[in-house]
């Protein structure tokens, strides 16, 4: 080492909770809280209650469902957009797409409530909390994989610095909390999409949904380009694919089990569409002037 001057005093460490310990605390708290909600909810309803009879499908419900699905698409996809070269970045997307989408979802829920659309409001509420809670199950596996060196990065911590545009400065307690909130919101969005699309179905529908999310994650820019793991994480090593696969299957299973118990009405988006069009058709036929006999 050139031009080194001798040290007259050695460096000291100040006894306080380190940033890393705080970060670990944040992730453990989020995970424990969410896993606790999953466990509590499953204990509360050990088996799925009888489904409620669906109310008549209306155009307004269909439109509001489409609005809810749009909101659910914003959360996860802003990350895909932000990490795709040439497209807007996370701070901008968080401010002008994510934040308005939250307001829009609240509007959808309020309008649904005012119109007495219990099927829709139940699906929105159940989808959000069930999806967010199931993310805790995913995190229990993801974090284990990360600390065993099987994941390329601690993604929620990265989300925080991306949203706050402070990558060079690294994460703080605040950015970690924000990153985890975003991470759980993404889980909630996937839950919302699931309940709005599928309604009440058997629990393994959630596992299928988890596998679809897994495939989506493994072939889109956040993993493939930004983390440079290649398609299905194969450039990084099999540990990533295995960890991520198990985590998403577990997420899907938790989501499916909870949705089966807390989504009240059967019938997915196609059933809603079919019923709306049938109703419109029968009304049109009924209103058509009958020929004089």
């Amino acid at each position: 080492m050139a031009n080194l001057r001798p040290a007259s005093k050695t460096s000291q460490t100040i006894p306080r909770m380190s940033d890393e310990s705080l970060s670990l605390l944040v992730e453990l708290l989020f995970t424990a809280a969410a896993v606790g909600v999953v466990a509590g909810a499953l204990l509360r309803r050990r088996s799925a209650p009888a489904p409620q009879a669906p109310s008549a499908a209306t155009w307004s419900e269909l439109v509001l469902t489409a609005g809810g699905l749009m909101v659910a698409a914003v959360g996860p996809n802003i990350l895909v957009v932000a990490l795709t070269p040439g497209l807007p970045e996370m701070p901008l997307l968080a401010r002008y797409a994510l934040a308005p989408s939250l307001v829009f979802l609240a509007v959808v829920w309020v309008v649904g409530k005012c119109l007495g659309q219990t099927r829709l409001t139940n699906r929105i509420c159940a989808g959000l909390w069930v999806g967010a809670a199931a993310s805790g199950v995913l995190d229990a596996i993801r974090l284990t994989g990360f600390y065993l060196g099987q994941m390329p990065g601690n993604m929620p911590r990265m989300f925080g610095v991306l949203i706050l545009d402070r990558m060079a400065l690294g994460p703080t307690l605040g950015s970690d909390v924000l990153g985890y909130l975003y991470h759980y919101w993404v889980g909630a969005c996937f839950g919302l999409t699931y309940t709005l699309l599928a309604g009440r179905i058997r629990w393994w529908g959630g596992v299928v949904w988890g596998l679809i999310i897994e495939v989506g994650m493994m072939v889109t820019p956040p993993m493939v380009v930004a983390m440079d793991t290649g398609y299905f994480g194969l450039k990084f090593g099999p540990g990533l694919l295995v960890t991520s696969f198990i985590a998403h299957v577990a997420y899907g299973a938790a989501l499916g089990l909870l949705a089966e118990r807390y989504v009240a009405h059967p019938g997915g988006i196609f059933s809603l569409l079919r019923n709306v069009f049938r109703r419109t058709e029968s009304r049109t036929v009924a209103n058509f002037p009958k020929p004089a006999s």
Partner: peptide
Amino acid sequence: VAKIDHKKMLSMVGAT
């Protein structure tokens, strides 16, 4: 002009 905290940045990818 800028400050780059390598320790914190690397903590996100599991390096200490």
